[in-house]
Protein backbone atom coordinates (compact mmCIF):
# COMPACT_ATOMS: atom_id res chain seq x y z
CA UNK A 1 0.00 0.00 0.00
CA UNK A 2 2.85 2.37 0.90
CA UNK A 3 4.50 1.68 -2.46
CA UNK A 4 1.23 2.38 -4.29
CA UNK A 5 0.88 5.74 -2.52
CA UNK A 6 4.49 6.68 -3.29
CA UNK A 7 4.01 5.65 -6.94
CA UNK A 8 0.82 7.73 -7.14
CA UNK A 9 2.59 10.79 -5.67
CA UNK A 10 5.53 10.43 -8.07
CA UNK A 11 3.10 10.11 -11.01
CA UNK A 12 1.10 13.12 -9.79
CA UNK A 13 4.21 15.33 -9.65
CA UNK A 14 5.54 13.95 -12.96
CA UNK A 15 2.13 14.45 -14.63
CA UNK A 16 2.04 18.08 -13.53
CA UNK A 17 5.62 18.64 -14.70
CA UNK A 18 4.85 16.94 -18.03
CA UNK A 19 2.01 19.37 -18.66
CA UNK A 20 4.38 22.24 -17.84
CA UNK A 21 7.02 20.87 -20.26
CA UNK A 22 9.59 20.02 -17.59
CA UNK A 23 10.47 16.45 -18.67
CA UNK A 24 8.00 14.66 -16.42
CA UNK A 25 8.13 11.38 -18.34
CA UNK A 26 11.89 11.05 -17.96
CA UNK A 27 11.64 12.01 -14.29
CA UNK A 28 9.01 9.37 -13.52
CA UNK A 29 11.11 6.68 -15.20
CA UNK A 30 14.04 7.68 -12.99
CA UNK A 31 11.89 7.85 -9.87
CA UNK A 32 10.49 4.37 -10.56
CA UNK A 33 13.89 2.75 -11.14
CA UNK A 34 16.16 4.67 -8.76
CA UNK A 35 13.81 5.55 -5.89
CA UNK A 36 11.14 2.82 -5.98
CA UNK A 37 13.35 -0.03 -7.26
CA UNK A 38 11.02 -1.03 -10.09
CA UNK A 39 12.64 -3.33 -12.66
CA UNK A 40 13.79 -1.37 -15.78
CA UNK A 41 11.43 -2.89 -18.39
CA UNK A 42 8.44 -2.70 -16.05
CA UNK A 43 9.32 0.91 -15.24
CA UNK A 44 9.50 1.77 -18.95
CA UNK A 45 6.05 0.32 -19.63
CA UNK A 46 4.60 2.04 -16.54
CA UNK A 47 6.14 5.34 -17.61
CA UNK A 48 4.67 5.05 -21.12
CA UNK A 49 1.23 4.13 -19.75
CA UNK A 50 1.40 7.03 -17.26
CA UNK A 51 1.94 9.52 -20.06
CA UNK A 52 -1.31 8.61 -21.88
CA UNK A 53 -3.81 10.07 -19.35
CA UNK A 54 -1.35 12.80 -18.30
CA UNK A 55 -0.91 14.03 -21.87
CA UNK A 56 -4.59 13.52 -22.70
CA UNK A 57 -5.67 15.74 -19.80
CA UNK A 58 -3.03 18.39 -20.54
CA UNK A 59 -4.01 18.42 -24.21
CA UNK A 60 -7.62 19.13 -23.35
CA UNK A 61 -6.51 22.44 -21.80
CA UNK A 62 -3.96 23.27 -24.49
CA UNK A 63 -6.61 22.75 -27.16
CA UNK A 64 -9.16 24.82 -25.24
CA UNK A 65 -6.62 27.65 -24.98
CA UNK A 66 -5.99 27.48 -28.75
CA UNK A 67 -2.34 26.50 -28.33
CA UNK A 68 -2.32 23.46 -30.65
CA UNK A 69 -0.60 23.90 -34.00
CA UNK A 70 -2.10 20.82 -35.69
CA UNK A 71 0.20 21.01 -38.74
CA UNK A 72 3.26 20.87 -36.50
CA UNK A 73 1.69 18.02 -34.50
CA UNK A 74 1.18 16.01 -37.70
CA UNK A 75 4.72 16.76 -38.87
CA UNK A 76 6.29 15.50 -35.64
CA UNK A 77 3.84 12.82 -34.48
CA UNK A 78 3.67 10.67 -37.64
CA UNK A 79 7.43 10.09 -38.11
CA UNK A 80 7.68 9.92 -34.32
CA UNK A 81 5.13 7.11 -34.00
CA UNK A 82 6.82 5.12 -36.80
CA UNK A 83 10.24 5.59 -35.19
CA UNK A 84 8.79 4.66 -31.78
CA UNK A 85 7.69 1.36 -33.29
CA UNK A 86 11.25 0.74 -34.52
CA UNK A 87 12.73 1.80 -31.16
CA UNK A 88 10.35 -0.36 -29.15
CA UNK A 89 11.05 -3.33 -31.44
CA UNK A 90 14.79 -2.86 -30.99
CA UNK A 91 14.37 -2.54 -27.21
CA UNK A 92 12.52 -5.88 -27.12
CA UNK A 93 15.32 -7.61 -29.03
CA UNK A 94 18.19 -6.08 -27.07
CA UNK A 95 19.29 -7.10 -23.60
CA UNK A 96 18.07 -4.51 -21.10
CA UNK A 97 21.58 -4.18 -19.58
CA UNK A 98 22.95 -3.25 -23.00
CA UNK A 99 20.81 -0.11 -22.98
CA UNK A 100 21.90 1.07 -19.52
CA UNK A 101 24.94 3.05 -20.64
CA UNK A 102 23.32 4.63 -23.70
CA UNK A 103 20.39 5.64 -21.47
CA UNK A 104 22.82 7.07 -18.93
CA UNK A 105 24.50 9.14 -21.65
CA UNK A 106 21.12 10.28 -22.91
CA UNK A 107 20.18 11.38 -19.38
CA UNK A 108 23.38 13.41 -19.11
CA UNK A 109 22.52 15.12 -22.40
CA UNK A 110 18.86 15.71 -21.47
CA UNK A 111 19.79 16.94 -17.98
CA UNK A 112 22.44 19.25 -19.43
CA UNK A 113 19.90 20.65 -21.90
CA UNK A 114 17.57 21.55 -19.05
CA UNK A 115 20.32 22.82 -16.75
CA UNK A 116 21.86 25.11 -19.33
CA UNK A 117 18.73 26.16 -21.24
CA UNK A 118 18.22 29.89 -21.47
CA UNK A 119 14.97 31.30 -20.11
CA UNK A 120 14.06 33.03 -23.36
CA UNK A 121 12.53 30.67 -25.89
CA UNK A 122 12.31 27.95 -23.27
CA UNK A 123 9.52 29.34 -21.16
CA UNK A 124 5.83 28.56 -20.91
CA UNK A 125 5.11 31.83 -19.12
CA UNK A 126 2.66 34.26 -20.64
CA UNK A 127 4.55 37.23 -22.03
CA UNK A 128 7.82 35.29 -22.29
CA UNK A 129 7.26 33.68 -25.67
CA UNK A 130 10.08 32.67 -27.97
CA UNK A 131 10.80 35.28 -30.65
CA UNK A 132 8.11 34.79 -33.35
CA UNK A 133 10.69 34.50 -36.11
CA UNK A 134 9.74 31.33 -37.93
CA UNK A 135 6.30 30.34 -36.67
CA UNK A 136 4.72 27.67 -38.86
CA UNK A 137 1.08 27.24 -39.73
Amino acid sequence: MKEAILTFLCALVAGTLSAWGVGGGTLLLLALTLLLDVEQRQAQTLNLLFFLPAAGAALFFHRRNGELDTAAVRRTAIPGALAALVGAGAAMLLDVDLLRRPFGLFLLYAGGTLLFSRGKGFSNQRGEEAPPTKKTQ
Binding site: S18, A19, W20, G21, G25, Q44, T45, L48, L49, F51, L52, A55, G56, A58, L59, H62, R63, N65, E67, L68, D69, A72, V73, T76, A77, G80, A81, A83, A84, L85, G87, A88, G121, F122, S123, N124, Q125, R126, E128, E129, A130, P132, K134, K135, T136
Partner: peptide, 23 residues
Amino acid sequence: ELEGRHAFAVCVAAMLPMCAVSA
Protein backbone atom coordinates in the same frame (compact mmCIF):
# COMPACT_ATOMS: atom_id res chain seq x y z
CA GLU B 1 10.71 27.26 -34.11
CA LEU B 2 7.31 27.82 -32.49
CA GLU B 3 6.02 30.33 -29.98
CA GLY B 4 6.78 29.13 -26.43
CA ARG B 5 3.33 27.95 -25.33
CA HIS B 6 2.55 26.41 -28.74
CA ALA B 7 5.82 24.46 -28.60
CA PHE B 8 4.84 22.84 -25.28
CA ALA B 9 1.36 21.97 -26.56
CA VAL B 10 2.71 20.47 -29.80
CA CYS B 11 5.31 18.49 -27.87
CA VAL B 12 2.69 16.92 -25.57
CA ALA B 13 0.37 16.16 -28.51
CA ALA B 14 3.16 14.61 -30.59
CA MET B 15 4.41 12.47 -27.71
CA LEU B 16 0.96 10.95 -27.14
CA PRO B 17 0.94 8.59 -30.20
CA MET B 18 4.63 7.82 -29.71
CA CYS B 19 3.94 6.73 -26.12
CA ALA B 20 0.83 4.79 -27.18
CA VAL B 21 2.84 2.77 -29.73
CA SER B 22 5.72 2.16 -27.30
CA ALA B 23 3.30 1.32 -24.45
